[in-house]
Design a protein around this nucleic acid. Structure first.
Length: 216
DNA sequence: ATAATGATTGGC
DNA sequence: CCAATCATTATT
């Protein structure tokens, strides 16, 4: 039952800066235990949102709202939000108390609970086997596959049904790619910041994420 | 109370 | 390209 990968994160893991954490998360494992069973995947794509001054962030302006409340607390908790009337997305809260930053998990490589995830995603298992990445290659897809909804809002990632694990040595920077965030054109100049990170050439990077590959 | 809109996805 | 679909937010 308790597949532990290499090791559950400590609370202190989250004291790193948001840019450092965004890259540190790549290669780590997210797991969620539910009545249906345990599902898990390796993080292969993330985006960071940097607080009151980031026009693309939900915390832009720095005023807490019921939705963004958890981002103003300590790091290491789940910020889950609902968008487009039908999708949930999962973030890791970062930054010290009062600094509303977060990292959006955009894509996973499926590792455990494939059948459960296929069921939640309404994808036939044999069809999913042909391309497992379709289960979790997008922020709303992975939330659906892992069974993450508003009930998981505010869970602590080091001591709850939703967990973050180390599984391998930190990835060397040469296998990490960066580029602009997806779907934030409304953010003006902030839309151009290279605040999306992904594992180079990984097949499970989101569809939009692979459109334009490495730049700079 | 009302109106605008979105850190997406899937289908045409 | 565009519809789906409604909670959240800002505004009246």
């Amino acid at each position: 039952m308790e597949n532990s990968w290499k090791g559950l994160v400590n609370k202190t893991f989250f004291s790193q800066s948001t840019p450092d954490l965004a890259q540190a998360l790549l290669g780590m494992v997210v797991a969620h235990d539910s009545p249906l069973g345990r599902c898990a995947g390796r993080i292969v794509e993330v985006e960071m949102y940097r607080g009151p001054d980031d026009k693309a962030a939900h915390s832009f302006g720095g005023r807490p709202t019921p939705r963004t409340r958890v981002m103003y607390g300590p790091p290491g908790y789940a910020y889950v939000y609902f968008v487009y009337g039908m999708h949930y997305c999962l973030n890791v809260v970062t930054g010290p108390i009062g600094s509303p930053e977060a990292i959006l998990i955009r894509a996973l490589e499926p590792l455990q609970g494939i059948e459960i995830m296929a069921q939640r995603r309404h994808i036939k298992i044999h069809e999913a086997s042909a391309n497992l990445c379709r289960l979790t290659n997008g922020p709303a897809k992975l939330a659906q596959a892992l069974g993450i909804g508003i009930k998981e809002y505010g869970l602590e990632l080091f001591n709850s049904p939703l967990q973050l694990y180390h599984d391998q040595d930190p990835l060397p920077s040469h296998v990490i790619a960066t580029g602009p965030r997806i779907n934030v054109s409304y953010a003006g100049e902030a839309a151009l910041y290279p605040w999306r990170f992904w594992i180079k050439n990984h097949p499970c990077v989101s569809i939009k994420g692979r459109v334009q590959k490495t730049k700079t």
